[in-house]
Design a protein around this nucleic acid. Structure first.
Lengths: 246, 246
DNA sequence: CGCGATTTGTGCACGCCTTCACAAGCGCCT
DNA sequence: AGGCGCTTGTGAAGGCGTGCACAAATCGCG
């Protein structure tokens, strides 16, 4: 975790926007709030109470208020939050107003689907380049983009202004790709390969392992099954839903 | 399957295995340990120290020891952990020795990829049925399975012994599918649709939102960018990688 | 203009998780 | 047999996150 004095830093308030250092848990929930807010805006809502937004995002209202209070005071007591103002604020904090350029490496089964996933474009991201090591794949067009050879990655990162790399290769190739991305200057990586990546300090890696999610569910399933067998076991204690995010 | 009293659990030790209630954080890491252990076993390692396993799984060694200590004492001081014994233990705890049957609903872009993802089969799961509401999709064969209409879901859950449902539909259809799954008796759901599902108590929902992961990375990217603009800003303090999991 | 209804923002306490540091235990070597 | 080095298992401390409960603030209405 980055070390960062933020407190008040007296004189540095220049052109640089004050950047509150939010708790990780809060950051992980902001996108959820954002999605709920977009839905509300589309439905014509002008303002929304913390209670209403919390319900739409599936969290506790006190938690939501505390999260939002970290960004500043964007609500009005007795009224609620201004939907569009809050959307702008969260999008600014998340850096989504820049429509970040994303490179995707590995257009196998999963990568192919990710390349065509429209949930990215609609939420501030543009996949601008596809790469693969397999010459069989190179040259193919996916969703309007031509797959390029992974050797061109370095040039593309600079030319296309790529700031985030997505790895959807087999695990054996993932570390090499990560090294290439880092060498090219990418400092944020989303890794779908089931393996641990080692990267230098200053590079952020988030990992999504689809099988792990199933395994966690399997554990709870196993536990529930063993509880039903217990004498007097109260079945179905209130589990509620867990969202990924560290 | 060696049974193992670990705490004290006085008299209730019947035929039902004592089920330690592990911390959620530990559960979320067990699959990671398991993957590392499989790699080690394949590489021919017989035993592994906590230090070594922790490195392979990308965690702190103290954390790993505490996690494993919750399952019981499966290590030998001065030596380390027996790889195959630990694999068996973790797989038992996670309920992976049952090769759970999984139903996948929604064979669009993402669902198609998930249906063909071999990472599931290799880690204890069998996708045994595919469903879609679109009649255009019904009847098509994907990876050896025929897509069926979502109306047959209920019967299939019973007949095929399905315990986990995966939702990869558009968000507008997700709640309906979740209701169907719950009505059919499924108590564990993995949701890829970007929306909040409401389910009765006793049903576990885990959510994976690919765009959210990118948004979190975007935040850190934004933050890093604003730090480089700071006077005397130490760029690149040690971030390290975060894994998903609640 | 004041009052009540409503909703935000937050101080506080509690519990979970992480991390350190070390005693206890095991195997090997002499 | 005894000692030494190595590794596990765990007590304790600290930090982070959550949720309650309430004071502060705003709007609308009489």
């Amino acid at each position: 975790m980055s070390q960062q004095r933020h407190g008040n830093t007296p004189g540095n308030a220049g052109a640089v926007p004050a950047f509150p250092d939010l708790p990780e848990a809060t950051i992980a929930r902001l996108p959820e709030y954002l999605r709920a807010l977009h839905n509300l805006a589309e439905a014509g809502s002008d303002t929304i109470s913390s209670e209403g937004l919390a319900a739409a995002a599936g969290v506790n209202s006190a938690k939501l208020r505390k999260d939002l209070s970290h960004l500043g005071s964007y609500g009005t007591r007795g009224v609620g939050y201004d939907v569009t103002l809050l959307i702008d604020q969260i999008e600014y904090i998340l850096g989504l107003d820049q429509r970040r350029a994303v490179a995707l490496v590995g257009v196998g089964n999963l990568g192919h689907a990710l390349a065509g996933y429209d949930g990215f474009a609609s939420r501030g991201f543009r996949i601008v380049a596809l790469f693969d090591a397999d010459l069989e794949q190179v040259g193919k067009a996916i969703n309007g983009l031509t797959v390029r050879h992974v050797g061109e990655l370095r040039r593309s990162v600079v030319e296309d202004g790529i700031t985030i790399g997505v790895i959807s290769t087999p695990p054996s190739a993932a570390q090499g790709v990560a090294d290439d991305l880092v060498a090219a200057g990418v400092t944020s990586i989303l890794n779908f390969a089931p393996c641990v990546l080692s990267v230098p300090a200053g590079v952020d890696v988030r990992k999504v392992d689809l099988a792990i999610e199933l395994q966690i569910l399997s554990f709870h399933e196993h536990r529930k099954a063993s509880l039903t067998a217990l004498p007097g076991g109260l079945v179905g204690e209130g589990e509620n839903q867990e969202a990924v995010g560290s």
